[in-house]
Simulated scan of single mutants.
Amino acid sequence: MPLQRFTRVYGIKDAKIAPLTTDPAAGSPTYGALIDVPGIKTFEISGDVEVKSLRGDNTKLATNSAITNIQVSVTHAKMSLDVLAAIIGGTVTDSGTTPAQKTGWDLTGANATMPPFKLEGVTPPNGVDIVGGDMHVVLHKLTLASFPDLGFAEEDYRIASFTANADPLLSSDKWLSIVLNETAAAIA
């Protein structure tokens, strides 16, 4: 018997991004190494639909709708230099030895490439109706829509966030996938 096709959705346990390295029209996309989005808090998907109505004879004759954009907004509790490099570009470098080690991210006009990337989020086990199961949401090809929210907050934690727009993959035409698993599975 197949799994039910509806569920409640509770919480988010993990999210990872992976740079999109190739997307051939004939073949399969390839992605770089998974990068953890640390302290994931929210993963919100929205979209835009363009609606055209045809009128004539003083009445509505037809309506046509088309998806014109899918967008994701993500908030996460910890800022990651590796995430910044994957979604904006730039270079992360490590230097020094203990006790004077440093790691830094540098963005220049030449390396601010806004590369495409994949984003996947998952509920905790039992975060869906299926006992022991989970739900994965994958946006296969994203590009940053605005500069990430970074910085500081007086006497408070600063939550990092970013918004990205989805495009369909050239190889499969996929924008978004939602998968319910009977047995919870890690992002792979």
Rank of each mutant, 00 (worst) to 15 (best):
M1A: 13
Q4R: 12
Q4N: 09
R5C: 04
F6G: 14
Y10A: 10
I12V: 15
A15E: 07
K16R: 15
I17E: 04
A18M: 07
A18C: 02
A26S: 12
A26E: 06
P29G: 04
Y31A: 04
Y31W: 09
Y31D: 06
Y31C: 06
S46H: 11
G47R: 13
D48V: 05
S53E: 15
D57F: 11
K60H: 11
S65F: 02
A66P: 00
T68I: 03
N69H: 06
N69P: 04
I70M: 08
S73T: 14
T75C: 01
T75H: 04
H76L: 03
A77G: 02
S80C: 01
S80H: 04
S80E: 06
D82K: 13
L84T: 08
A86N: 08
I87F: 06
I88M: 12
G90C: 06
V92A: 07
D94I: 08
T98F: 14
T103R: 15
L107D: 02
G109T: 10
A110T: 10
T113Q: 10
M114W: 15
P116V: 03
K118M: 14
K118S: 05
E120N: 02
E120C: 10
G121S: 13
V122K: 15
V122R: 15
P124F: 07
P124R: 03
P125I: 12
P125L: 06
V128F: 04
D129F: 07
I130A: 05
I130W: 00
I130S: 00
I130Q: 05
V131P: 09
G132C: 10
V138T: 15
L139Q: 08
K141Q: 08
K141Y: 07
K141T: 05
T143K: 15
L144C: 03
A145M: 07
D149R: 10
D149P: 03
F152W: 12
F152M: 13
A153H: 11
E155Q: 14
D156W: 00
D156S: 14
Y157H: 13
R158G: 00
R158V: 03
A160Q: 07
S161K: 12
F162Y: 15
N165A: 11
A166I: 11
D173T: 13
D173I: 00
L176W: 14
V179G: 00
V179F: 02
N181Y: 11
E182Q: 12
T183M: 03
T183E: 04
A185Q: 14
I187D: 06
A188N: 09
